[in-house]
């Protein structure tokens, strides 16, 4: 993506200069009501059609999840989990279906970790966008993301993820997945309205015996602009590893927060690493493997293992969940 919203930028990665302040936009959010989602994957297809990206035709690995993971050309996937949980006084079998993708964190770990100026933006409406032309493919965003979302393409060594359809939102349209969702499981609007709508849904779910129904809008990342209504908000991890208390990796915090005086130096170093990486992996390398599967992280991706990071890894072999 390149930015359509140059007047609305709230933050830019690896930049100390102030961002544009002239225009304030409404803070938006996408609300995914997991209790209404039928797992039809229409949103997946809509995403690939609107953004005109199509991954490979894969295989079945023993579950309904297809493609099996997020990828540079797969920005959202449905995750299916078979669980046994309490409903009222009894235990009931449930098939939980969660639409996975970027959460558009208010405090985005990806942006904070990114060493390349302007490769990641946050608009004043809350959307976190990757500007691929500025991306150096270092993979720090992957390490910095507590939700394990960004994926580096082996084709072009750029990081990709859901844009929250920033291009559509910029011109007053709802995201493509929202428009397509046949059941109304995904809604889009001001963050405030979405929180209100979620509250109504929670009342309904509680009335149906889900005592712990609630909104997922985790404080550890300052809240998110993609939120979930969960029947079991006390146990988000049963939804295919949704982190219970996501935090930005300690390493990222170290670079940019506590050790401020060292931050500039650190950034210089990371940029350098990125540069080396670019030289090492480079576009030529990508062209050498045009047929490799597009999904999944490349071996060159740096993974951090901060505390929040572990929880965020939805990396369990989907097969194990079945």
């Amino acid at each position: 993506m390149s930015s359509l919203q140059s007047l609305d930028i709230k933050r830019r990665s690896a930049t100390t200069l102030p961002s544009t302040q002239a225009r304030e936009t409404l803070e938006v959010a996408k609300l995914i009501d997991v209790s209404k989602c039928i797992g039809c994957k229409a949103c997946q297809v809509a995403c690939s059609e609107w953004n005109d990206i199509r991954g490979d035709i894969g295989t079945n690995v023993g579950v309904y999840d297809n493609p099996a993971d997020l990828g540079p050309k797969t920005w959202t996937v449905m995750r299916y989990s078979e669980v046994e949980e309490k409903k009222g006084e009894e235990m009931a079998f449930e098939w939980l279906i969660r639409k996975d993708g970027c959460m558009h964190c208010a405090e985005p770990g990806c942006l904070k970790a990114c060493p390349s100026p302007g490769a990641i933006l946050q608009y004043s409406n809350g959307i976190v966008d990757f500007i691929e032309e500025n991306c150096i493919g270092c993979g720090y965003c992957v390490a910095g993301c507590p939700f394990n979302v960004p994926r580096i393409s082996k084709q072009d060594s750029k990081a990709y993820k859901c844009t929250l359809c920033s291009d559509r939102v910029a011109v007053g349209l709802e995201p493509a997945c929202v428009k397509t969702c046949p059941t109304g499981a995904i809604t889009f609007g001001s963050k405030e309205d979405m929180i209100d709508h979620a509250a109504e849904r929670v009342v309904d779910l509680k009335e149906r015996g889900y005592a712990n129904a609630g909104l997922y809008n985790p404080a550890g990342v300052g809240g998110t602009h993609v939120m979930y209504v969960l029947k079991h908000a006390d146990k988000p991890e049963i939804y295919h590893g949704l982190p219970k208390d996501p935090q930005i990796s300690a390493t990222v915090g170290l670079w940019k927060g506590v050790m401020k005086p060292l931050a500039m130096l650190a950034m210089g170093l990371t940029a350098l690493t990125g540069f080396f990486h670019y030289v090492k992996v480079g576009p030529n390398d990508a062209e050498a493997h045009p047929d490799e599967p597009e999904d999944g992280n490349g071996p060159h991706v740096i993974r951090s293992s901060g505390p929040g990071q572990m929880e965020g890894k939805g990396n369990v072999n989907p097969g194990e969940q079945a």
């Binding site: 994957k41 035709i57 295989t59 079945n60 023993g62 297809n66 493609p67 097969g319």
Partner: peptide, 29 residues
């Protein structure tokens, strides 16, 4: 169609875990 082929690419059959265990069938076999 490519879009549909991507989201459900390959033929499968569904087997209950109890029978699978009895028959030594693992997920993805």
């Amino acid at each position: 169609l490519k879009g549909n082929a991507i989201i459900q690419p390959e033929q499968f059959v569904e087997v209950g875990d109890e029978l699978a265990k009895e028959k030594g069938i693992a997920n993805g076999d």
